[in-house]
């Protein structure tokens, strides 16, 4: 079999998921790993929207909020299984993205930024204010997914941390596989073409508005699933999941790592998820360091961390 970049990416991800636990000093790291994978799923959606199609969203955490609260509310109110609630959340996010995306995606650059920002803030505000439904800023508990008990019945006995680590890892690889397939499909080529120049793409017959909407909807689903997994894993969720800072975090992870490739963006997610864990020792300096890292990487390594590192390695190899 020929080693395509797609296959290489998937193999690298799978190897990392499987091998990393051998280096874990304690069980706590399963939890950190699972968090990295959850963020990676959201960030893969940003790769499709920003990396492929060149569109900006400063409100994608809103969709993560929808996914998360679907898992908290749907089982309690409609009695459906949490796994179905993930699908329901994704469907609602897709529908909302489709409805709002039409008018919003006509906007460009900063205007698109402020429109998506507004969308995200509206969602997060609803989660904060509709107390009788969401219990407001204090958060709400989320039911157990139940998959771990099922696996136990089949003879696969995992601790809670281990289960979520491998399950989210699997979901991340699945998400990466879908995104990589899209990259090489006619739709993916159309998206990358309109990223280069909308006018040029239009002249060769790309339905620019439709393709942008498609990318927006797909990335919303990624964000929603990521939010759902976070909620199910923590068994508790607060409206912060839909907040402005979470939107910024998603975009920053993707761009910092290298928004042009799935692997780069996931690398960014790993770095920015680990950074606060490392910095808890100097909690006072956390914001200072985070801000500094964001600025330095964007100034000196413009394509993102991973592409810049790879280029340096390649140059050394020659």
């Amino acid at each position: 079999m020929k080693m395509t970049p797609k296959l290489a990416t998937l193999l690298i991800l799978a190897a990392l998921v499987l091998l990393a636990p051998f280096l874990f000093p304690s069980n706590f790291y399963y939890r950190v790993g699972a968090l990295i994978f959850v963020n990676s799923i959201a960030v893969t959606g940003i790769v499709i929207l920003t990396g492929y199609a060149g569109q900006i969203s400063l409100g994608h955490a809103g969709f993560a909020g929808i996914g998360a609260y679907a898992c908290a509310l749907a089982p309690a109110h409609f009695g459906i299984h949490p796994a179905l609630a993930v699908v329901l959340g994704a469907a609602i996010s897709a529908l909302l993205a489709w409805l709002v995306g039409r008018p919003i995606l006509r906007l460009k650059g900063y205007y698109l930024g402020v429109a998506t920002l507004g969308l995200g803030i509206l969602i997060s505000m609803m989660l904060n204010n509709e107390r009788q439904l969401t219990r407001g800023p204090d958060g709400i508990e989320v039911p157990e997914l139940g998959l771990r008990a099922l696996l136990k019945g089949w003879g696969l006995d995992l601790t809670n941390g281990q289960f979520w680590y491998y399950f989210c890892g699997l979901c991340m690889i699945l998400g990466a596989w879908l995104a990589l397939n899209l990259h090489n499909s006619p739709s993916g080529r159309a998206l990358r073409a309109l990223h280069g120049s909308e006018v040029a793409a239009r002249t060769v017959g790309v339905d620019v508005a439709r393709m942008k909407l498609q990318a927006f909807v797909i990335s919303a689903v990624y964000a929603s699933v990521s939010g759902s997994l976070l909620a199910l894993q923590n068994k508790f969720i607060t409206p912060d999941v839909a907040g402005f800072m979470h939107s910024i975090e998603m975009v920053t992870m993707a761009v910092l790592g290298g928004v042009g490739s799935v692997l780069g963006a996931i690398f960014g997610a790993a770095i920015l998820t680990l950074l606060p864990q490392v910095l808890t020792v100097f909690a006072e300096y956390e914001q200072l360091v985070l801000g500094l890292v964001m600025m330095l990487v964007m100034i000196f390594l413009r394509e993102g961390l991973l592409p810049s590192i790879l280029r340096k390695l390649r140059r050394k190899g020659e």
Partner: peptide, 16 residues
């Protein structure tokens, strides 16, 4: 996108 991240980085830095 990079410029947005730089200025938001500056904002977080100044807060810190």
């Amino acid at each position: 996108v990079s410029l947005i991240i730089i200025t938001i980085g500056a904002s977080i830095f100044l807060q810190g």
